[in-house]
Design a protein around this nucleic acid. Structure first.
Length: 356
DNA sequence: TTTTTTGT
């Protein structure tokens, strides 16, 4: 509502109250003013309002709706396609191709691995981005990310999620969110007060800033299962820079797959009152770009301490991260391709990712 | 802009 002059506005309101004598109108006006103040400054107020409304009602549809916007992700298979990933013979891939064709969506790609051509369609596999895990592992699936919780360290050792362009560009805010225990951890996750006055930050593994398009998904990054004790100088310094670099790449490349976590091992120092939380010495990130037929990886290994060194100096092979953590990343890739990508020299990774 | 700290 806009008035050309305060006088007209006053006349309008006065006549309104006299005629109806109704406090409901007054309440409505305050409500609208409140809405305007709350959303007026946002870049897309209507979208922000709608997202909040949906998260209030508890609808979980936002992620699924957005998936159609992924420029390269294969559609979910009608039936689950279970493929033994130790077998990478072309026949396997061919049967997947036929299934895709029968769905009318033959969007597979040909990949060159060395001299050979391979049919390559692993995105159709359920959980293709997750690191390898066993039947007794605590795999926790939230809307935006999946993690493996390690009770003995009271934190996750990997967190895996696709990072799409539209997820970074939303309007969700972190200012009203609070750290909460993760209700899905049966053994009980760490709690926020375990970190209080410890001298360590509650560092996000899946960053809140990677889920700006949905308030509900951002809220879920505040579960304590997604949190790890990081030195403030580290969390707010190099680690933050790395997270920003990954978002920049995700925008440039229209989507990436991210796996991140601490390097956990016995004998680490601990913090906490109710729980004993290991304080990791190192953190890693493994990034996969996969827009058939282009595919590349990069890995980072950073010490939990302040640093002013350039990010390039933390690039390592994925093999190196696997050796340190014992985690097998992207096990659903055809073995030969996986082996080739994960052993790529840091200098080549830097060349592939930091140019442009 | 995003990463957090403190209290009841």
């Amino acid at each position: 509502m806009f008035f050309r002059s305060p006088f007209r506005a006053r006349r309008y309101f006065r006549s309104g109250f006299r005629l109806r004598n109704n406090t409901l109108i007054l309440l409505l006006i305050f409500f609208l003013i409140g809405l305007f103040l709350h959303y007026g400054g946002r870049t897309e107020p209507v979208v922000a309002f709608w997202n909040d409304l949906k998260s209030l009602v508890g609808l979980k549809s936002d992620r699924r709706a957005s998936e159609s916007a992924n420029p390269y992700r294969a559609p979910e298979p009608k039936q689950e396609v279970e493929v033994d990933h130790t077998d990478t013979e072309a026949s396997d891939d061919r049967s997947m191709l036929e299934k895709a064709k029968s769905n009318g969506k033959a969007n597979r790609a040909e990949l060159r691995v060395g001299e050979e051509k391979k049919l390559f369609d692993f995105e159709k596999l359920v959980d293709f981005t997750l690191p390898a895990f066993g039947p007794t592992d605590a795999i926790i699936r939230h809307d935006g990310y999946t993690l493996r919780y390690r009770e003995e360290y009271e934190q996750a050792d990997w967190v895996s999620y696709p990072l799409l362009e539209n997820e970074i560009l939303g309007d969700a805010e972190r200012k009203n969110e609070q750290f909460q225990p993760d209700p899905m951890i049966e053994t009980g996750s760490a709690i926020s007060s375990d970190y209080s006055r410890s001298g360590y930050d509650r560092g996000h593994l899946a960053p809140a800033g990677d889920f700006k398009f949905s308030q509900q998904m951002m809220r879920q990054t505040f579960y304590m299962s997604n949190i790890s004790p990081q030195k403030p100088e580290f969390n707010r310094g190099v680690w933050k820079s790395l997270e920003e670099q990954v978002r920049t790449w995700a925008l440039r490349d229209k989507g990436l797959y991210v796996v991140t976590g601490p390097v956990l091992r016995p004998g680490l120092p601990t913090i906490g009152k109710k729980n004993r939380i290991a304080v990791p010495e190192y953190y890693y990130k493994v990034i996969l770009y996969c827009n058939n037929p282009d595919i590349r990886m990069i890995a980072f290994l950073l010490k939990n301490e302040e640093s002013t060194r350039s990010l390039k100096q933390f690039v390592v092979t994925v093999d190196e991260v696997e050796k340190r953590t014992g985690i097998d990343f992207f096990p659903k890739l055809p073995d030969q391709l996986e082996q080739q990508l994960e052993s790529t020299r840091p200098s080549i990774m830097i060349e592939n990712w930091f140019r442009l």
